[in-house]
Design a protein around this nucleic acid. Sequence first.
DNA 1: AATGAATGAGTATTCATTCAT
DNA 2: TATGAATGAATACTCATTCAT
Lengths: 212, 212, 212, 212
Amino acid sequence: MKAGERRERVIAHARTDILDAAIRAFARTGLHGTTVQDIAREAGYTAASLYTYFKSKQEIVDAMSNLLTEEYVQVFDQAVPAGLTFHQRFELVLHRHLELVEKRKNVFVTLFGEDSGGGLCGPDGHGKTFHTNFERRIAVLAEWFHRNARPEDIGGNDPKIIARLLFGMAFGLLHEMRDNLQQGSFVNYAPILTEFFFHGVSSKLKPGVRKK
Amino acid sequence: MKAGERRERVIAHARTDILDAAIRAFARTGLHGTTVQDIAREAGYTAASLYTYFKSKQEIVDAMSNLLTEEYVQVFDQAVPAGLTFHQRFELVLHRHLELVEKRKNVFVTLFGEDSGGGLCGPDGHGKTFHTNFERRIAVLAEWFHRNARPEDIGGNDPKIIARLLFGMAFGLLHEMRDNLQQGSFVNYAPILTEFFFHGVSSKLKPGVRKK
Amino acid sequence: MKAGERRERVIAHARTDILDAAIRAFARTGLHGTTVQDIAREAGYTAASLYTYFKSKQEIVDAMSNLLTEEYVQVFDQAVPAGLTFHQRFELVLHRHLELVEKRKNVFVTLFGEDSGGGLCGPDGHGKTFHTNFERRIAVLAEWFHRNARPEDIGGNDPKIIARLLFGMAFGLLHEMRDNLQQGSFVNYAPILTEFFFHGVSSKLKPGVRKK
Amino acid sequence: MKAGERRERVIAHARTDILDAAIRAFARTGLHGTTVQDIAREAGYTAASLYTYFKSKQEIVDAMSNLLTEEYVQVFDQAVPAGLTFHQRFELVLHRHLELVEKRKNVFVTLFGEDSGGGLCGPDGHGKTFHTNFERRIAVLAEWFHRNARPEDIGGNDPKIIARLLFGMAFGLLHEMRDNLQQGSFVNYAPILTEFFFHGVSSKLKPGVRKK
DNA sequence: AATGAATGAGTATTCATTCAT
DNA sequence: TATGAATGAATACTCATTCAT
């Protein structure tokens, strides 16, 4: 039925709107600092209305978390031209990722800079949301290395370790953004990250960098 | 006055005890998940008593945060034998750091896996505690690079960037610990980090690593 | 108007359906435990639709309450053969009542085991529904005694008191049903109630009872 | 230590005060109609303070319920002069009970006129508090009959049934109080109940009653 | 007539913090 | 100094009810 379809789309749309609002709200005041009312206000609803679309605040958090992870994962599904070297593919994918991070940097910083349940998470597993996300992203990245890099491409290292190192580097750079979100495009870090990834600090100095 | 001194020492001791308890408590249940009561119980006080030594929960958090940062900073103050190459000094300091991380693993993971006030921190500056800590460590590390590395030692890159990358890598590795804190010594990552830091994935494969 | 009549009948039918559903729902989860949605679901409507037929939840409750009372009252309107002794009439009517209780056992237990507004009822008179019902039944019963029993038939007592005692006894027996609704027919209590009503514990022991 | 004892007594006293307040509040507005704030106000506390003494509203309800049952049970523990006939003992105990009911009639009516969870109680057993109480009282009463009445004293009937009938009768009389709590002493019903219990409506008319 | 969606009002519970003893 | 007790403020969630479609 058309009606049924349309309704579903309307609901999906509302959920998306709410999630977007939640992302903005969380990015601004953090997971704990943001009340359901805050999200509702940001989304143009009343708090009670959110419960039409989500069962609980936690479900909103989870949905948002999944949404962001999903975006991340999808970068790996995008087509990559054939015949590229590992180095080229690396640059391409890295670039795409940095663009995504650029888009989401506000939340990104929040998401990985806060946790809803506390460090090691209570014994109930509550609050592991973002830790899980963090790890899932690393896992996906590791998988990509596994499929795209020959052992010698990554120095014979375990792809998981490599993924962890790369992701960590990006996180370290991203963390700077906390103070000055407005300025500077995150994509600009692509060359540095690439160079460092492949050669560490022993990279042959390139003109542009050397002058710095 | 003798009495005055003694009292001060007693107070300082109590503060230390409380901070230690707080560290354990926070490591277990996170910043939000830990109540003042929890800290008090862990310290052998009642909640009300903590207010004799600290003005607020936030002050406890801050003091703990500073304590941890101070530990970190002191690693750089330890004597380093003269005549070492940059590479050697790097390894030495890295090793010391990893040992420290090892010791504080639990809190460390918590501290940087959660935030007390939320992502970008409310306009009141509340919750910036750990972000500040994160950044301060990076700053200290950058400073160390600045003083200990010639430009060519770090590929002509900005020490701040290098510091951020290195710190990020360590963070990436550390994050794994969340799931399995008990097993594996964090110090074992020293060779990998060193190798990656200097040569990225292009390191000449060493026998031990190659076999992996 | 034919149309008008039909519409009225449709409306009346819907109201009946809803009340039946409400009875089932209330019997299952009680007055407070049952939401308007629950009733609607049970009736095959949406919650909003119920407001086409009833002004409020309270009105549903009241209507249901009245319905049940009405059923009860009608037992007294049923024909009773002429020439029966008081004892015989008593047994007949009691039997009919127990059958009714049997049928409504579930709700009955619920109705008198819970109240919608609280004990003595707020000053707004809210929640008196079932109290009123309780009392109305007793009143009807008292009235029946008044019309059917000579003073000496009921020991010269006030019919109202007698009605209250009898109704209370039945209630006491009924309350047991809360735990085991499925088993045992309530009608089986008729002889015991009758015997006790007429002779208290001083009844001449009948064989069947004595053996128990 | 004296201090420890005194504190315990203070706490016990506070709990008692709160329970008394709760009883008054519940008697006035019912279980659902009474908020934690209401109880607190009645007890001279703030709502938050109640949680120093009780874990939850439900715990208050349970404690009150137990308190009332306990009072009831204790009536049976009071000494009864030796050498009394069953009839005499019955009258004595009945009288004591009616006095107790008199004292608690407000709540009593509420307690058994409302239920916190709904009729048959959710599958979680929640809300059975008062049903359980009802049944426990009957059980205690039945036990008393079992120990104090020879089979022929109660017409060879099952003590449980007899207890249920008696308790029901009292309940029926009590229910009248809902409307006019102020007037009339419940104890006045003792003769009627006794007479009815022993002889049903067939009691030999006594002067006082006959005139009514 | 039926309903999806929206909401106002209400509630139990938590927790950092204060203060008299 | 230590603390038991008290509390204000905050928050997620529920539900009867309304209304545009």
